[in-house]
């Protein structure tokens, strides 16, 4: 027997699949693969995993009128028209390093969907490995999916975040880039509609950019040991309730996923209002 200690694994490895696993399940009728894109024309439309359906982040994952995530009814319709049943394993992947796939993962968990997984490395890794792509839009027989009541323990709202400032038992994690954290940049030019009136961060928040959790080469998650160290070094530990935020809640879903599923923290919330709510609201305290 080898004397070297075993590399610690993720707390919930079952929510993560690799590209090879997906490649081996393309014909598996109990698996539904969905590509979640911010920009579907340049991504899903240019070729996607054979059999994968499209979740268009803007159209499918958001309420069309109020600023909110999709309603329970909209989620039931989305899953139903893509042939998902209670027994389906849903595998999400997407553009922008899986940011929007992670957001969809969080949405689905919010409505109690049981078996949702993320494809490690997302669209980027699938392309880098020259795996098969198709432009054919798949057709699945419609089902009638019934979701659960919202799971509010994984979502934070503005008032709750306000009450969490400088709390000992709760810690805020700002996952934006360092220049957004300090207020030097309000919104990157790529997203002109995500502007805020004020720059900076929520008082007391720790800045742990989402990208620090992934390997640059292929967008996969860093190892358990590296992730443990990353968060511990900033005082973000499992005994505290963690609230993640970014600009519109998508990168923070990604870090929420890391903390809740890869590290197994018991209480992690995503503040999806994020900076576009906080930095545009009157009298919200800001630190720079």
């Amino acid at each position: 027997m080898s004397g070297s200690p075993k590399e610690p694994t993720y707390a919930h490895p079952e929510v993560l699949v690799d590209t090879e696993w997906v490649g081996n399940h393309l014909q598996d009728r109990s698996v539904r693969v969905a590509e979640v894109d911010y920009d579907p024309v340049a991504n899903y439309g240019a070729g996607h995993i054979p059999g994968a359906v499209l979740f268009d982040w803007k159209k499918d994952m958001n309420d069309p009128l109020n600023r909110d995530i999709l309603s329970r009814k909209e989620l039931e319709d989305l899953l139903g028209r893509n042939g998902v049943t209670k027994d389906t394993t849903i595998v999400l992947y997407g553009d922008f390093n899986n940011w929007f796939a992670a957001y969809a993962f969080w949405d689905l968990k919010y409505y109690g969907v049981k078996d949702v997984r993320l494809m490690n490395g997302g669209r980027k890794k699938w392309l880098l490995e020259d795996r098969p792509l198709t432009k054919d839009g798949p057709q699945y027989q419609r089902t009638s999916y019934v979701a659960s009541e919202p799971e509010e323990r994984i979502r934070a709202y503005k008032d709750y975040v306000s009450a969490s400032i400088r709390s000992r038992s709760r810690v805020l994690v700002d996952v934006r880039g360092p220049k957004e954290f300090t207020g030097e940049v309000l919104a990157p030019p790529e997203y002109p509609t995500e502007h805020a009136q004020r720059g900076g961060h929520i008082p007391g928040a720790q800045n742990i950019p989402w990208a620090q959790a992934v390997n640059d080469a292929d967008g996969t998650f860093k190892s358990r040991a590296q992730l443990d160290e990353l968060y511990k070094s900033k005082g973000v530990t499992a005994d505290r309730e963690v609230i993640t935020y970014c600009r519109i809640g998508e990168r923070s879903s990604f870090s929420w996923f890391v903390l809740k599923y890869l590290l197994g923290f018991p209480d992690v919330k995503n503040y999806d209002g994020s900076w576009t709510e906080w930095g545009n609201s009157v009298r919200q305290p800001i630190e720079r």
Partner: peptide, 15 residues
């Protein structure tokens, strides 16, 4: 049809 490399910017990644 296989990749000779990849290019990445803030708005798009592609092979």
């Amino acid at each position: 049809g296989q990749s000779i490399g990849s290019v990445e910017g803030p708005r798009h990644f592609d092979v």
